[in-house]
Design a protein around this nucleic acid. Sequence first.
RNA 1: GGCAUCGUGGCCGAGUGGCUAGGCACAGCUCUGCAAAAGCUUGUACAGCGGUUCGAAUCCGCUCGAUGCCUCCA
Length: 493
Amino acid sequence: MQLYQEQTLKLYNTLTNKKEVFKPINEGHVGMYVCGPTVYSNVHLGNCRTFMSFDMIFRYLKHVGYKVRFVRNITDAGHLENDADEGEDKIAKKARLEQIEPMEVVQRYTVDFHNTLQKFNLLPPSIEPTATGHIIEQIEIIKDILEKGYAYEINGSVYFDVVKFNETNEYGKLSGRKLEDMISNTRELTAQDEKRNPQDFALWKKAEPQHIMRWPSPWGDGFPGWHLECTAMSTKYLGEKFDIHGGGMDLKFPHHECEIAQAEASNGQSPVNYWMHANMLTLNGKKMAKSTGNNLLPNEIFSGENDILSKPFVASVVRFFMMQAHYASILDLSNDALLASEKGYYKLMDSLSTLENLETGPTSDFDVETWKNKCYSAMNDDFNTPILIAQLFDAVKHINLIKEGKETITDGDKAKLEEYINAFVFDVLGLENTSASDNNSDKLSGVVELLIELRNEARSNKDFATSDKIRDQLDAMGIQLKDGKEGTTYSLS
RNA sequence: GGCAUCGUGGCCGAGUGGCUAGGCACAGCUCUGCAAAAGCUUGUACAGCGGUUCGAAUCCGCUCGAUGCCUCCA
């Protein structure tokens, strides 16, 4: 009996704009595809939020017992710099600017991507395919779409015929657009466009002689269009129809719309049952984006080397901050918000340590079973992590009350509480305990214990000058002493 | 210009017809040698204007404001 059999998970499907009960195609198994990064520069924090949201979703699905195949690609080719004829691959451009090989760019930023996500404690996906590793698959899909009449070749490039497609299918159903509106709202036409219609998009693009990233194809040397890789890789690893497709809100149109069109044209069916879109992270009220320069790199947060924040923050605090907002809401990052989250995060972590050493009693004042159910309800309601965290703090309150001797808990309930709170905090939310009192070295803890002892001696001798000196200087070093009923503990900040 | 989304107490952020989310900050109290930590208590917020309703932050309309997409973007 798996947990998912007793939990009713609902998620917001951006295809239908409704919250729906999640039912996988194959009982007990979930296929999930998430659009990964284009590796032409360092991942910024906004990227991380999206990947973190889907990491949380991946974790929860696994937690409730699903076998999940989670595919997240690496885009290492194929993004046109602009829509004009001189369209250039983003990675190739970067390579030229930096005078290095394209694959060197890809390598460098892929490593950065992995390092960063690891700091944020993201689980690796089941499969992480690359676009350049699936050129053949992409070419096959283009052939198929051509055969079915939804694409045309011109001058060594192949374009998807959106108008033709729209005659039998519904282009724009994901983003709520109508082709007629799009046509009438087209802004100035790019001069001499070889496309039949501005809404058409490239499946294959002819490579100019100076273009370095190129592959042979039935239409000559070139490179694949922007949207094709995801169709190729999702189909290959998850099948023509799979459960969940995720990505950032900004990919909804045109990227995901085009994916649907490609898949429907090629396979004759809608590829995805549940589309999920994670919302943007803003910085100073503006979208964080590489292209505008309004961005913050994870390393700048960890090191404190930036003009926005007053101090460095550890990755887990940033993760906690993001988990305090619903994945589908816009979240605005600020120094104050991060400081507030940091406090809350350490409060939560401290109470987990407290819980371990909690004394038990004959009865429980805390209804752990009801609490647990509330936690699941929160997650089952479209992965509502803010509500889950509110429940966690409810438990924190009880843990502290029990510690103070104002409430009691039985052995059994304590064990159950430990099991579930740890599961939610670490397995589902993916937080890490950086609270120092738990994982610092034995030597340091020995030294601090000694100082606590000396301070207590001074205090009992009413030598407050000495005792305060120990306390204040430790505090200045980032070691905070906490006097409690059962003696003094400490934590690192 | 077109299409969307959103506007919640000092800050962040849930909630979508009646029943107090939560975190941080602030104040008072308990504890303490004094603090810190911890606990308790208090805050009656929902952009504005109308409408629907016995009842709206929650539904409808308008106004104002913000953001996103429409072009590579998580």
